[in-house]
Design a protein around this nucleic acid. Structure first.
Length: 386
RNA sequence: GGGCGGUUCGCAUAGCGGCAAUUGCAUCUGGCUGUAGACCAGACGUCCUUACGGACUACGGGGGUUCGAGUCCCUCACCGCCCA
């Protein structure tokens, strides 16, 4: 790995926060940084110029989705993800490990839709190991995961296959194939899944052929300190270029932060750390305090499309009638393209009229908003104020 | 003048003897954290109840048949189409 490097430029004295530079063959990322999610090789509703305008410097695509549509082969022929989507900056690919959960257990139990990924402290552990391992849509084997598709066919993802697809896609940073676990999983099952993830981590490393892509290992272990401890040790003992924290991070937000902090303390200081799938605006300061260098989340773009816009006071539900004649910007302190040029009244109108422009303007705003929060904190760390 | 067809909760629809009554739109409330997501859930006659549930008022007006009527019968009003 020649072209990939991570250097820490400033370390906070007040917390585990640090600033750094992640160098990749497609440019650098100043960390801490939010990674925009572009599952199907596109940050939904946004073109590369929009993504730049929103001040994002790195984009994450998904192995599972690009593999299902066989697009990975097309991307390979094009010369890589960056060229394919005409995004000149750095890219990452998730391994498909999250889909083991989201299309399996989560789908069967409606997690993320009608039940929270943070089910709360009082919830009984209703899941049996085999319930999780063999859900209606995904069957998990030591070899890999078997996905049952809506058309009745099956597709299999193994660590080797995930890496091979990720090499076809050619993002700057790849993730090892892992098993993302449910917040309802038992300790016993979480241990089993973690051990499987460790096996898959080794196999992912062995499967890697290209020398111009970085590979991050993923720490699992669910909500248990002993498992997280074991997983952090195991994964950081392997020659990964960086580390991801994945899987369920407990039943409450509070626990999530405890676990992220706990794992970070056990990862090597000098290597980059990525928190997978966390990034509400209000989560970001704490995430960075705990030592996260990068983190990705679908929330900014998804919530934008669903009518929720980020503002200083929290959230703005753009569809509410009170916005109908509100001629102020979404957020008065926001300097994004949308806020500089458009009113709440217009966004409200576009949303209700189902105009496609809404998605672009709303996504630019939420993404800009998240990036602005992150940039501010980055500056504060540099100035010793965070 | 004659013949059909219609009138249901904002609009549009379903309903053909057990119904506070279908569905869509609209409206309102919630939700969304490595994208199953331009998505999902709930409310949508009034009142009481945390809830289960209960009370009342309702399918153009009036009358009737029936244990029971948006639903069947008579009549009136209005709307639509066709024939004069």
């Amino acid at each position: 790995m020649d072209k990939f490097s991570f250097s820490i430029t400033q370390t906070s004295k007040k917390s585990r926060a640090r600033t750094g530079t992640l160098r990749t063959p497609h440019g650098s990322v100043e960390t801490p940084s939010f990674v925009a999610v572009g599952t199907h090789a596109s940050v939904k509703a946004l073109g590369p110029d929009d993504v730049h305008m929103a001040d994002s410097s790195i984009v994450l695509a998904n192995t599972y989705h690009l593999f299902l549509s066989k697009t990975h082969a097309v991307i390979k022929k094009t010369g890589g993800l960056s060229r394919f989507m005409r995004w000149d900056g750095p890219t990452m690919t998730d391994s498909g490990g999250f889909q083991v959960f989201s299309l399996g257990f989560a789908k069967d139990h409606d997690i993320g839709r009608n039940s929270s990924i943070f089910p709360g402290e009082n919830l009984k552990k209703i899941s049996k190991a085999k319930d999780i391992k063999e859900s209606q849509h995904v069957k998990i084997l030591d070899e890999g995961a078997v996905f049952r598709l809506p058309d009745g066919t099956r597709t299999v993802l193994t660590p080797e296959k995930s890496i091979s697809i990720q090499e076809d896609i050619g993002a700057d940073i790849m993730f090892a194939f892992d098993e993302c676990t449910s917040p309802l999983a038992t300790w016993e099952y979480s241990k089993e899944a973690m051990e499987r993830t460790h096996q898959w981590a080794t196999r992912s490393l062995e499967a890697k052929k290209r020398g111009d892509q970085a590979l991050y290992g993923i720490v699992q272990g669910g909500e248990w300190d002993d498992l997280r401890e074991e997983s952090a040790q195991k994964i950081s003992s392997l020659p990964f270029d960086g580390f991801g924290i994945g899987g369920s991070l407990g039943k409450t937000k509070k626990r999530m932060f405890e676990l992220i902090g706990f794992v970070h303390e056990r990862l090597p200081e000098q290597k980059p750390r990525h928190v997978l799938g966390v990034g509400y605006p209000e989560d970001i300061p704490e995430l960075i305090r705990l030592g996260a260098d990068t983190f990705d989340c679908v929330a900014p773009t998804r919530e934008a499309r669903n009518g929720t816009l980020y503002i200083k006071e929290g959230r703005l539900s753009v569809e509410k009638a009170e916005n109908r004649e509100d001629f102020s910007p979404i957020d008065s302190s926001c300097v994004c393209f949308t806020c500089q040029n458009f009113t709440r009244a217009y966004l409200h109108h576009l949303f209700r009229s189902r105009e496609l422009l809404y998605f672009r303007l709303a996504s630019i705003h939420n993404l800009s908003y998240i990036n602005a929060i992150t940039r501010d904190i980055r500056e504060k760390i540099k100035q010793g104020r965070f």
